[in-house]
Amino acid sequence: MAATPSMAAALAASLPAPQTAPTPAAPTYEAIPASMSKVIDIEADIPVTSVQLDGLVVSKIIKHSREAQGSNAHGLLLGLDIDGTLEINNSFALPHHFTDDDDKSIKGVARYQASMLRSLKEVQVDDSVVGFYQAMTLGSFYTQSLVETQALHQDKLRHGGIVIVHDISQTARGNASFRAFRLTKAFLDAYKRNNFSTDSLIDHRLTFSSIVEEIPLRIRTNPLLSSFLETLSAPAPMPSVDIKPTTATSTAAIPPSFSVLNLGSGNISRNMEQIVDALDSYRTEEGNLAYLQRQIAREKVKAEGYIAKRKEENASRVAQGLAPLPEEDVNRLFKIPAEPSRLESMLLLGRIDAYSKSLEGTSSAGLVKMYAAKGSAGA
């Protein structure tokens, strides 16, 4: 059965093919200094150990996430790897696809991606794809599409690429959340083998917590943006001489925000709903796996019974001096299903864990605020 096209395939359609360093000719020029050899890293021998996100990229991702109104915001990251640091200098949004089965939509996204990269190259802007970003809510980002896209990136990009996840719910509470991840080697090996059976999970020591590994991330702002933010947060003096001196310098360009005092009780109910939905999905998935396991067990019992019966018949024929019956292919006689994949169960467990941690953080902060409010009221 042919595999249906996925969004991951669309994103990978215009990615550059993995480059292999050609065999260099005999050097007829001065050798590269040792101090510059690590920075240049022609053969991509230095692994990426940190990610640097430009302030412009942060603002573009936040803007796109707000306009998309949900976790549909996703796009490509552009930058360069220097001395083990992946510097992300630019990004652009990708149009949202409605269904993975819509072939026209997938081809449209691929054409748009190729056109954007070609346009950036024409204006001499960095057009090297180093990963993608994905918006999420309540800390949960474990999805099949994210895993497929990141697996393709790690297979085709120079240093494997990373995924930046942006938590919309945290940003709405005034805490911009950006985290960088990549798939672990053990998970990527199991994914390439397309084997997520019980034995494979045990051999690779895979759990939902070992699907991805987090990479340290820092945000860099250029001096111009830092100066602009400084002017916004500094007191703005009033030009009028009629205003009292005490109020002339007390007005700030950015008004004070009291959002941190919000208990966030509205997010708790939504968080609980997400946990219940994830638990229901996990219970359904486990029920399907149990049904398939019982079906496999029944077919194996039939096959073992057939083999035992054939051995008894051959022993009886040999005792009578007759030739034994030929052995037949049991897999052809009995259609024993392959062991089902447990990838979806792992992703659902990761989702439940993320929702639970988000609920823990929201409720603990809310309790502290409630006790502080109670103490202030008593005073």
Rank of each mutant, 00 (worst) to 15 (best):
R179H: 13
G378H: 05
A93S: 06
Q295A: 13
D353Q: 08
S169P: 00
E214L: 00
N90G: 13
L225I: 14
S140R: 03
V163P: 00
G55F: 10
S91R: 04
H153P: 05
A73N: 03
E230L: 13
T4M: 15
A21S: 12
E230D: 15
V260I: 11
N222G: 14
R173W: 02
A373M: 11
I46P: 01
N267C: 01
A3K: 00
K60W: 05
A379T: 07
F334L: 06
G350Q: 02
E214C: 03
Y355R: 04
R298N: 12
S6N: 07
T184A: 09
R332H: 11
S316V: 11
S316K: 15
G84K: 12
S197V: 05
L94Y: 00
A236W: 13
D83W: 02
I162T: 08
V125G: 07
V51F: 04
M272I: 13
H97C: 14
V330H: 06
E312W: 04
R182Q: 15
N90Q: 11
A365P: 03
A377C: 03
L76V: 15
R205H: 12
S197Q: 01
S356Y: 08
V276R: 08
L152N: 01
I268P: 01
L117K: 06
L322C: 03
I46V: 15
T149A: 10
R270W: 13
Q144T: 12
S169Y: 01
A26N: 08
I307M: 15
Q113I: 09
A25Y: 05
I296Q: 06
A234F: 10
S37G: 01
Q124D: 10
A303T: 08
E313S: 06
T23W: 02
E43K: 09
D203T: 14
I82S: 07
L261N: 02
S37K: 01
G70H: 07
A297I: 05
I168H: 00
V165Q: 00
V48L: 09
R294H: 12
A68V: 04
S259N: 09
S14W: 03
N195K: 15
A25C: 02
Y112A: 10
S227N: 12
E313V: 14
S265H: 09
L53C: 03
D102E: 13
G174L: 02
N72M: 10
G375Q: 11
S376V: 07
A186S: 13
S145E: 13
N89A: 11
P16N: 06
V39K: 11
R310W: 09
A34D: 12
P235Y: 02
R342E: 09
S265Y: 12
P216H: 02
N288M: 12
N72T: 09
S376N: 08
A9P: 00
L120A: 05
F92Y: 05
R317K: 13
R342M: 14
A12R: 03
E339Y: 08
A190D: 08
A17L: 02
L279I: 09
S140M: 07
M7Q: 10
V123F: 10
